[in-house]
Computed example of a mutant assay.
Amino acid sequence: MTTLNPQKLSVTYRQGVTALHPVICRKYTLTHSDETAELFLFVDHQFATDQIGPMRDEVFAEWLQKDGACMLYVYVFVGNENIDKSIQAIRYTIFKKEMPLALQAIRYGDQMFFKRYSPLDSAPIFVHFHSNDPNFHTIEYFGTPSMYA
């Protein structure tokens, strides 16, 4: 697993979201620069769609509540009918390989939030890989945030 370099992570809280509030409706958008290896984490009430690049390799995550329990639900775009299956296979493999780094960035970047709401460190993380191909359209369990601290 690639280890997070905190000096390469930039965190931006937007639209009234703070390091501690809110819990539900807290959304993360993680993007990166291929040239500098910098990571950019945006924490907001909505996904930072203005940060989506042409490669569509951003990671979206949000806190959801189901049956009274919180979970961190993550979304990545693997492909659609406009993206060849072989490219989708590569994207799926890369997303799976790099997901621990993305989760480290979210956990580290929002560490004050996790300290304040420590039970969320034990919440399950589910990653939804979006694709029109059923081989790559999956929802997978990725442990808990505490695994990425």
Rank of each mutant, 00 (worst) to 15 (best):
M99N: 01
Y117M: 03
I90P: 00
T93E: 07
F114M: 05
Y73V: 05
V76K: 07
V127K: 02
Q104W: 06
Y75D: 10
Y117C: 09
T138M: 02
Y117F: 09
K66H: 14
F126Y: 12
G68L: 11
E140K: 08
Y75E: 14
F114L: 07
K96A: 12
N80R: 04
S122A: 15
I83Y: 01
M71W: 02
A89M: 02
C70E: 13
G68M: 11
K66G: 14
E81C: 06
D133K: 00
S131G: 10
H128N: 15
R107M: 08
I94R: 13
G109C: 07
A69L: 14
Y92S: 02
D110S: 09
H137D: 13
F77C: 05
A105V: 10
D67R: 15
F114E: 03
Q65F: 10
A105W: 12
F129W: 09
L103S: 00
D133C: 11
A123C: 14
M71K: 11
I94C: 06
A69E: 13
S86V: 12
T138F: 01
D133Y: 00
S122G: 08
V127S: 04
F60D: 11
E81F: 10
R116D: 12
E62Y: 09
I83V: 13
F60E: 11
P134F: 09
T93K: 11
I90C: 06
I125S: 03
I90R: 10
P124R: 06
F113K: 01
F114C: 00
F77H: 13
F136S: 03
D110Q: 08
F113R: 00
F129T: 04
E140F: 03
V76M: 08
L101F: 04
H137L: 02
D67L: 10
T138V: 03
K97H: 08
M71E: 13
H130S: 14
K115I: 14
L120A: 08
Y73I: 00
I83S: 04
S118E: 12
A69I: 12
N82W: 13
C70D: 12
V74W: 02
N135G: 00
V127A: 10
D110P: 06
R107N: 05
W63S: 08
T138I: 05
R107L: 01
Y108W: 14
I106W: 06
D84R: 14
H137F: 09
D133E: 07
Y108D: 08
D133T: 15
A105Q: 10
K115H: 13
F77E: 07
P134W: 03
E81G: 08
A123F: 05
R107D: 03
A89L: 05
W63N: 08
S122L: 15
E81P: 00
H128L: 01
K85T: 15
N135R: 12
D133W: 00
W63Q: 04
H130V: 14
H137E: 13
A61G: 04
E98H: 03
H137T: 02
T138P: 00
A102L: 02
Q111K: 14
G109M: 10
G79V: 06
D121Q: 11
V127I: 08
P119T: 05
